[in-house]
Design a binder for these strands. Structure first.
Lengths: 107, 107
DNA sequence: AGCATATATGATTATACATTCATATAATAA
DNA sequence: TTATTATATGAATGTATAATCATATATGCT
């Protein structure tokens, strides 16, 4: 199998998960420490830590240590562009689905 | 949980998989039938059919029937933009990793 | 009607993933 | 040194996912 395709899939898999999307969204305003992230997204510290580690390992997040605290940030602006486009698709699709119902008056 | 986040995740999950990426890439030049797709990406007919159905259900692909043949196409141009950005990230990361090794002469 | 081709699907298996709880480790403060 | 706070991780569990084989269904052809 094309390993280029596998790398692409790995990058996208690092984003394509609800908890990770919440984390990334919270990081839109820049670097935050774990202690700020997990209460903000309402997930367990443990689970949050695992997702952060996953994304860092896969090159999506950067990691900076300052004393006891670990600060994570989104490393590539393209990550936000990807999410914005996914949002566009999701919106367009959900509108299309609504249209199927209310669309009795089909032009 | 925010269901908006779950929809975004669903859209991205429909793309974030090696076999599906191969399919989408093959569909860059437009609509193709199943009988063209599975030999092109070198996967079983059965497995290809499942992934096509998955992506169609999740609003990523359109589906058109013509006789015995079923033609699939990528429905939203944003899908390609997402993949292109994932490719950019994957490339940048793999270059950074190479740099870690060869980078003895660090400027 | 019978046959060939295209696509889909049930059942199964193996693997990966997300989450939780409890606990380990590291840094700092008292 | 002990206590406290921040983060990570082992073990366990449940659930989802991908792939395969065999077979069903649908269409069109002879």
């Amino acid at each position: 199998m094309s390993s280029a395709t596998n790398y692409q899939a790995d990058v996208l898999k690092s984003i394509a998960q609800a908890t990770r999307l919440k984390i990334i969204d919270f990081l839109r305003n820049g670097e935050r420490c774990v202690c700020e992230i997990f209460p903000a997204i309402d997930e367990e510290q443990s689970n949050t830590s695992r997702h952060l580690a996953y994304m860092q390992t896969h090159g999506i997040l950067s990691r900076r240590k300052d004393g006891v605290k670990i600060y994570y940030a989104v490393k590539h602006p393209e990550v936000f562009e990807i999410i914005d486009r996914a949002t566009t698709i999701a919106k367009r699709e959900s509108e299309a689905r609504i249209g199927l119902f209310s669309g009795a008056e089909r032009r």
